[in-house]
Amino acid sequence: MRTAATAVKEVAARSEGRHICYRAYVADHGWQDPVCDGAEAGTVGKNLPIKALNIAVSGTKGVLGNGAHVVEGWLTGSRWSSAAEGVDMYLGSTKEVVSPLEGFTLKTVEGTVCPNTHVKDKGWLRQGCTEPAAWRYFGSDMAKDKLQLEAVRITV
């Protein structure tokens, strides 16, 4: 199975610069194929939540993040994930007992990362970018909405 790391290594071999590849684990469907540099992962208009994300980068010196869940919020334990360049990082959970993602925090070690999220009943939210090497949350409003994440587009 191709992961985000496999895809980002292929893209980096073809094209210099910064790249991000990712794939979504969609409820009732499993892992999708990886996409890169702003392409859409997940589904739109099918009411299918994203349970987990697999992310890998090149040209950023690594990526860090955490997934927030509709019911559990930030999971306890080892919440923050990180990965060096060309290595898979996972956010969320594929376990059936864990609720879908409602959003995530993300940052790259160098430069910025710019996700856009599609949330149930809200559609595509405005794309945002981190400040260099700073955290930022993307997705459903954790304080009031608690809506599932359904699709993402991410650039670096």
Rank of each mutant, 00 (worst) to 15 (best):
A12G: 10
R14W: 00
S15Y: 04
S15C: 08
S15Q: 14
S15A: 12
E16I: 12
E16V: 13
E16K: 15
E16C: 10
G17L: 07
G17Y: 05
R18M: 09
H19A: 08
I20S: 05
C21R: 10
C21V: 07
C21Y: 00
R23A: 01
A24K: 10
A24N: 04
A24M: 00
V26C: 02
V26E: 02
A27W: 05
A27Q: 14
D28M: 09
H29M: 13
G30H: 09
G30L: 03
Q32I: 05
Q32T: 10
D33S: 14
P34E: 00
P34T: 05
P34G: 02
P34Q: 09
C36L: 01
D37K: 11
E40F: 03
E40M: 14
G42S: 05
V44T: 15
V44Q: 06
V44F: 02
V44L: 03
G45L: 03
G45R: 13
G45E: 07
K46Y: 05
N47V: 08
N47W: 08
P49I: 06
P49L: 07
I50M: 00
K51P: 01
K51N: 12
L53V: 04
N54P: 03
I55A: 01
V57E: 03
S58R: 15
S58C: 07
S58L: 02
G59I: 09
T60L: 11
T60N: 09
K61D: 10
K61V: 07
V63H: 00
V63A: 04
L64H: 13
G65C: 05
A68T: 13
H69Y: 04
V70A: 03
V70E: 01
V70G: 03
V71L: 07
V71Y: 07
E72N: 10
W74F: 06
L75T: 13
T76K: 15
T76P: 12
S78L: 13
R79Y: 05
W80P: 00
W80H: 11
S81I: 03
S81L: 08
S82E: 09
A84G: 12
G86E: 03
G86F: 02
G86V: 06
V87T: 14
D88S: 10
D88W: 02
D88H: 08
Y90M: 09
Y90C: 01
L91K: 07
L91S: 05
L91T: 05
G92K: 10
S93D: 07
K95Y: 12
E96F: 07
E96Q: 15
V97K: 14
V98K: 13
V98S: 08
S99N: 08
L101W: 00
L101C: 06
E102I: 12
E102W: 02
T105G: 13
L106K: 12
L106R: 10
K107C: 02
K107F: 00
G111M: 03
G111E: 01
G111P: 05
N116S: 14
N116V: 14
N116Y: 06
T117E: 00
K120R: 15
G123Y: 01
G123T: 06
L125E: 04
R126Y: 01
R126E: 11
R126A: 15
Q127G: 14
C129W: 05
E131S: 14
E131W: 11
P132Q: 06
A133R: 15
A133V: 11
A134S: 14
W135H: 08
R136G: 08
G139I: 06
D141E: 10
D141A: 11
D141T: 11
M142L: 11
M142R: 15
M142E: 07
A143E: 13
A143C: 07
A143P: 03
K144S: 14
K144T: 15
L147T: 06
